[in-house]
């Protein structure tokens, strides 16, 4: 059996969301005209990512702090990172289909949990009259990852 492409793509996208803030594109003379931002939520011009947030072009993360706040941040970040790792591990050519299916199911659970958390966050910020909230590109990318994982399970079931 070869590489499971949809599962690998889902894992690769999860890794990108977990580590990368933005990718430049549309180049003219080696200068990027635009940046594809992977922010998940934008509330009051503060961009929220899997690892922290960017406010006034300065990034903040509590992943490195030695406090209890750190544990919650690590858990949320792991919900992004583990689907990436699992997706790539489950898609390797020699992986056992039964185990791969379990990993894809775990990925779906993690991504659904993230989507639930951020959707709830968005709804709460809508109720706050002072804030303006938007979904970023990262939020829609999470749906793509979710769909890719579901497709991977269906392909596994067929084979």
């Amino acid at each position: 059996m070869g590489l499971r492409k949809t599962g690998f793509a889902a894992g690769f996208l999860s890794i990108i969301i977990a580590f990368i803030a933005g990718v430049p594109f549309s180049f003219t003379n080696e200068t990027a005209n635009s940046i594809l931002n992977f922010s998940i939520l934008i509330i009051n011009n503060v961009e929220y990512f899997s690892w922290g947030y960017i406010s006034n072009n300065v990034g903040y993360t509590s992943l490195g702090f030695n406090s209890i706040e750190n544990l919650i941040t690590i858990l949320i970040w792991l919900l992004f990172f583990l689907p990436g790792l699992f997706g790539i591990m489950a898609s390797s050519p020699k992986s056992i289909p039964e185990y791969s299916k379990k990993l894809y199911k775990l990925n779906i659970l993690f991504i659904s949990l993230i989507l639930f958390i951020y959707t709830l966050d968005y709804i709460f910020s809508l109720f706050s009259s002072l804030s303006s909230a938007f979904f970023g590109f990262g939020y829609y990318l999470l749906y793509i990852i979710l769909i890719l994982n579901i497709i991977s399970i269906k392909i596994l079931k067929k084979s």
Binding site: F19, I20, G22, P24, I35, W51, G52, G59, T61, L63
Partner: peptide, 10 residues
């Protein structure tokens, strides 16, 4: 020394 988070290409 550290794991970079929020990587950008500028």
């Amino acid at each position: 020394q550290s794991i970079p988070l929020g990587i950008y290409f500028a």
